[in-house]
Computed example of a mutant assay.
Amino acid sequence: MKKQFLTALFLATSLAVFAQSKKPISKPLVSHIYTADPSAHVFNGKIYIYPSHDIESGVPQDDEGGHFDMKDYHILSMDKIGGKVTDHGVALDIKNIPWAGRQLWAPDAAFKNGTYYLYFPVKDKKDVFRMGVATSKSPVGPFKAEKEPIKGSFSIDPSVFKDTDGNFYMYFGGIWGGQLQRWKTGSYDPKGKLQNDNQPALAPKIAKLSKDMLSFAEEAKDVKILDKNGKVLLAGDNSKRFFEASWVHKYKGKYYFSYSTGDTHLINYATGNNPYGPFTYQGVVLNPVEGWTNHHSIVEVEGKWYLFYHDVQLSGKTHLRNVKVTELKHNSDGSIQTITAYK
């Protein structure tokens, strides 16, 4: 894994040098704080963004992402794309999550029956990532966390998708520092390793949410990502296989599962006919951005589609990122036009 990390770090550095020589197509939405991993939603006609809040915590950079040591969440909003962005302050602090240990990573949100739900990964007091949920009557909080993590949850990057039939599903998982490889047997193994290159890639997970939105209605299942020949992607195909950052949107009856490839820094997408998949790999949504990570969301606003993403334009540092937005376009056949974040 160390060799993989060093190779990826070299690639990321090269990409950053390339990116800095180009002009970004979008500006950071806010510059007074560092933000990343933007999960965007339209609630009651207004755009709300639920990002990570990057800080300089003094933790040395490591292969497990220990330097991404976030302590709270700030929620952003705007009335329209390109409009004024409001930071609504701290919506949830790690100090107010009874079971939390450290590292609040990428969150997501949902709305049902007058209540807003904030879903988040954080390491428990045994340093194991679990999924938590907090509630509020306001989309911007403050949110009150449940006393325990969601039973049966693990790893990182919760993404909650509301289908047209009203059912909600959580997609989650991330390899390397996201600990997904430690759950291969169904229970936590601190020594769990990544797949060999010739083995099927580790799959992201899906679980239908219960009616109260506070628990899983079923045991988490694998989300299979296939190549055009119907074969599961292999771990060695790291320009296509899943790494982290699940997101699902629905377009003209098709389900689009998009995700980050991590060490190759792409946002890819695959399509399927139901929320459980399988999903067939189709191509690249977003080419590599400046910085090591790539994490996104895709949302429709007033008939147009937009990609929310991040890079490190403001700081130049991997762990101090800034969220951005740009228009995303589907072709007439449903395919997505690949976006390059620099001119």
Rank of each mutant, 00 (worst) to 15 (best):
D87N: 14
I97P: 04
L286Q: 12
Y306S: 02
V289E: 00
M1L: 10
Y281W: 15
I175T: 14
K162M: 12
K231H: 11
A12K: 14
H53A: 04
P98M: 07
N331R: 15
H32I: 01
S57M: 01
N273M: 05
Y73V: 07
A19C: 15
Y188D: 04
P24R: 12
Y116C: 08
G174T: 03
D333S: 09
V85L: 09
A36R: 12
H265P: 03
K125A: 02
G262E: 11
I49M: 13
S260G: 10
F308R: 04
V133P: 00
G45L: 07
A201I: 04
Q199C: 14
Y259F: 15
L307P: 00
V59S: 12
M170L: 09
A106R: 10
A106S: 14
S210A: 15
L118H: 10
Q181D: 04
S31W: 03
I49W: 05
L214Q: 05
N96S: 09
D37T: 01
P288N: 05
K329S: 09
K22M: 06
Q199V: 06
K240I: 07
A106Y: 10
L314K: 13
P60G: 00
F143L: 01
I25Y: 02
V289H: 08
G291N: 14
G166Q: 04
K84N: 14
A109P: 00
F111R: 15
Y259V: 09
F308P: 08
A245M: 14
P158L: 01
V30N: 04
I175E: 01
D157L: 07
K3S: 15
G65A: 02
H88E: 01
I336V: 15
Y309A: 06
S187V: 15
L180P: 07
L180E: 13
E219L: 08
A40H: 12
A217Y: 06
V299D: 03
K317P: 05
D157R: 13
P190I: 12
T7Y: 11
I175D: 06
P107E: 06
A220I: 01
A91V: 07
Q313F: 14
S335D: 05
D311T: 08
D87E: 01
N274D: 09
N167R: 15
M78I: 00
I298V: 11
D227E: 05
L214G: 05
N96L: 05
L202A: 02
L202M: 03
P158W: 06
P288F: 08
D263R: 11
P28F: 02
F10L: 04
A36S: 14
T185S: 15
K3D: 14
G334W: 12
K84L: 11
T35E: 01
G230H: 05
S26H: 07
N44V: 00
Q4S: 13
F161T: 01
S52K: 15
G277V: 14
S31E: 12
K125F: 00
Y276D: 15
Y50P: 11
V248D: 00
Q20G: 06
G45Q: 10
D79K: 11
I206P: 09
F161Y: 08
E327N: 01
V128F: 03
F308H: 13
G316M: 10
S332A: 11
S159A: 08
H319N: 14
I97M: 09
L286W: 12
F172G: 03
K151L: 12
G114L: 11
A110E: 00
I75M: 03
Q337D: 09
W176A: 08
S332D: 10
V85S: 02
V30R: 14
L104E: 00
G101I: 04
G141H: 02
I150P: 06
K250F: 01
D93R: 11
I206A: 02
